[in-house]
Design a protein around this nucleic acid. Sequence first.
DNA 1: CCTCGTCTCTGGAACGTTCTAGTGAAGAGG
DNA 2: CCTCTTCACTAGAACGTTCCAGAGACGAGG
Lengths: 347, 347
Amino acid sequence: MPPRAPDRRPTLADVAARAGVSTALVSIVMRDAPGASTATRDRVRRAAEEIGYRPDSRARLLRSSRSRLLGVVFGVQHPFHGDLVSGLYAAAERAGYELALSAVTPGRDERRAVAGLLQDRCEALVLLGPSSPTAALADLAAHLPVVVVARSVRSAAVDVVRTADDEGMRLAVEHLIALGHHDVVHVDGGRAPGAAERRRGYREALGAARLTPRVVPGGLGEDDGAAAARDLLAGSLPTAVTVFNDRCALGVLDVLRRAGRAVPEEVSVVGYDDSRIARLTSVDLTSVAQDVDRLAALAVGRALDRLDGVPVERRELVVPPRLVVRSTTAPPRPRDVVERPSCRVPP
Amino acid sequence: MPPRAPDRRPTLADVAARAGVSTALVSIVMRDAPGASTATRDRVRRAAEEIGYRPDSRARLLRSSRSRLLGVVFGVQHPFHGDLVSGLYAAAERAGYELALSAVTPGRDERRAVAGLLQDRCEALVLLGPSSPTAALADLAAHLPVVVVARSVRSAAVDVVRTADDEGMRLAVEHLIALGHHDVVHVDGGRAPGAAERRRGYREALGAARLTPRVVPGGLGEDDGAAAARDLLAGSLPTAVTVFNDRCALGVLDVLRRAGRAVPEEVSVVGYDDSRIARLTSVDLTSVAQDVDRLAALAVGRALDRLDGVPVERRELVVPPRLVVRSTTAPPRPRDVVERPSCRVPP
DNA sequence: CCTCGTCTCTGGAACGTTCTAGTGAAGAGG
DNA sequence: CCTCTTCACTAGAACGTTCCAGAGACGAGG
């Protein structure tokens, strides 16, 4: 069994006693604050080292009014959130802030996740693709700065950092049109964060080219994409498809290929998020990349601005996306060739 | 701009003043501790509600020696960890504990993640598939109870909760042998947590059937699986493949199908983890399921046992896995049929 | 010699809780 | 009538840190 705590963990006072100084001085040294000679600094540090002292962040935060703590609510299932969290850690560290993570899981909703963070006395909240209604977000923002990432919110109370999703989808459509496609269908994300903007971008780009848009219901997951693809196969198959996100696109790809429809020869497919899975050599999905690190940095920066009372010009920060062309998009094949059942055999 | 804090957040004293009682009494009420009449309980609660009081967990934990806080280190990229975290939240809540999450990201290694949790004064640590060397884990365990999940550790200092990975892989192989396969290859996970056990299970099951094992290097991700599959295609293709995990199996599947090799007709594939992606109707991968909720519950239970000084019989808790048969496994086809290039056309 | 700064360093009061040791008051038992 | 218990409640001391207001010591400038 591990030698369980009969010995309390060492405190400032223990270090102070050992180094023969006051606790206040030890505090100064541990914080790298000015007000101690290099000689004592060394001595104190050595004493701390010897007894294995670690500052107690609870007590530290309790005392100082600023907690230097940023609360983050994220979906534990969503790979895109994982990338964002990585970026947030980096950005927060640069600013001397810590992150308090609170996950949304199937058994733990957003309310609970937020409530946990509030108890921890975070100075500000960063919410990744939250599903709470606008009113709830505004209520929250009345108490502390709230930055919403990857979703637009129609409320002046919260800050928003997001990708220009309409532009992203426009890039995708324009790429397809440039390849010669006339029949482009959009597989929709429904009420998911960003879905409305992506749908709009698709519509606008198609309208600009004088083509008629066709939107079919999809969703966030692979299954939604698979269902959408089956719908398309049952009806009239377009020459190209733009999909709400990569996971959904994966479902589309899989059903198409299983049905013997070659991608990209018969159907081109574009995803969204440029997730790890899209980059796989075996998937190699053309996708719209969100600049995750920039989103994260802006979110942290904006939260800090609010805390410091810096006047903010635009409430919404929009980051341009980038189209990553891979091997699931190509020029359309003449229809007569397509009508024959295809057979992918190595030559 | 949000109405920023000129008003401090309300404290026990504020509630006490409003309800006309002492802070101690408010504390009693807020904790649902015995020692207050129902009448005053109501009154205090109402007062707290009115001024929007929220207990400050920092101060609360500082005062009480027990923090009722469990530290969890997880990989932000790993979907399997996401599932475990969900289970941990549920188990911790049942026991009246909170979770402190600390993520391992590409830019934040395990040391950092653990250091963060130690500052937060967690009572015990739960590490999901940690990559730290055994010695480092043992050092940690000298300070506080440490429970390692989904990896076996050769040290008496730390507790381990894991799936019987050897048995899992044995189940997979026995399933394939029962279907009539004689040529089964294992795509390995290398040094990943659990890989050694799975490899062993594979070897033992094949040995028991008097068949010769063949192990090819793989890895954790889709790309590793894809590479392994290309190796197999370049050499001699077996009739069945067991793969270290689902993500890797996905890579295998994709490369095989793109090369025109039908799954499961020509090659059967078994994954491991029964992750969300395996369950997709479009993937429908036969896989070995780990009982995530049970692993999580056992991990929390074991941590609490250590904290309470409950004597522990076995240091290692092993949970049996379960084979989930889906559509990527089938009896092997006679070789002569396989040799012709295949063509999957709907009839 | 006195004053003024600057540089270290210290004592003691916060921070918002919980915990310990009580204080009265009301009722029960003698 | 007096003690004893129980109940509802309170005062004040922790918890481990940071912050504030100084206190000496030491030179420099007058």
